[in-house]
Lab assay of single mutants.
Amino acid sequence: NLFVALYDFVASGDNTLSITKGEKLRVLGYNHNGEWCEAQTKNGQGWVPSNYITPVN
């Protein structure tokens, strides 16, 4: 599942992941309501807002 970041997101805690607009990432899963997804980039792994990313076509 390859996705791309639509916006910059700055991590606010130990379990969140900073991403940069245009960065590619893999989604590993979603939380119970789908608002957050666990993602992996070359810089690490953590939670990002699911509305900040979109699938790569």
Rank of each mutant, 00 (worst) to 15 (best):
Y7E: 15
G13M: 08
L2D: 09
P55F: 07
T41A: 05
N31A: 14
T16D: 01
N57P: 13
G46T: 02
G44P: 01
T16A: 03
Y30A: 08
L17C: 10
L2E: 06
F3N: 05
V56M: 15
L28H: 02
Y52D: 02
P49G: 00
N15W: 11
D14L: 04
L6I: 15
S12V: 07
I19C: 08
H32L: 11
Y30W: 09
T41Q: 01
G13W: 04
A11Y: 05
S12P: 14
K24Q: 02
G13Y: 07
K42I: 10
Q40C: 10
I19L: 12
R26F: 03
Y7D: 09
V56R: 08
S50D: 04
L25K: 01
A5M: 12
N43G: 14
V10P: 08
N43Y: 06
L25C: 11
Y30Q: 13
S50I: 03
R26N: 15
V56F: 14
V27I: 10
K21G: 04
L6K: 09
S18N: 01
Y52Q: 05
Y30F: 10
K42Y: 13
G29Y: 05
Q45M: 08
N51E: 12
N1Q: 07
T20S: 09
G44K: 10
G13L: 09
R26G: 08
N33Q: 10
I19P: 00
E35Q: 11
Y30V: 10
S18Q: 14
L6T: 13
E35W: 03
L2I: 15
N33C: 03
V27W: 05
N15E: 12
Q40I: 05
A11C: 09
Y7L: 12
K21C: 05
V4P: 00
T20H: 05
A39S: 05
C37S: 08
T54C: 13
N15T: 11
F3L: 01
S18I: 12
S50R: 14
E23N: 02
L17I: 04
T20F: 04
V4I: 14
L6A: 12
V4K: 13
G13K: 15
D8T: 11
V56L: 08
L25G: 09
H32C: 15
G13Q: 11
L17H: 06
Y7W: 07
K24W: 04
E35A: 07
L28F: 03
G34M: 09
L2G: 04
P49N: 02
I53M: 06
V10M: 14
E35V: 07
N57D: 10
P49I: 02
A39H: 01
P55I: 12
K24D: 06
T41V: 07
N33I: 04
V27H: 03
V56C: 08
W47F: 15
F9S: 04
V4R: 09
D14H: 06
V48M: 03
W36G: 01
N33Y: 01
R26Y: 07
F3H: 05
V56D: 06
V56P: 15
K24T: 05
V56N: 13
W47M: 07
Q45E: 06
E23W: 01
Q45Y: 06
L17S: 01
N33P: 03
S50M: 14
N57A: 14
K42L: 08
V10Q: 15
G46D: 01
A5I: 01
G22Y: 04
N31T: 13
V4L: 07
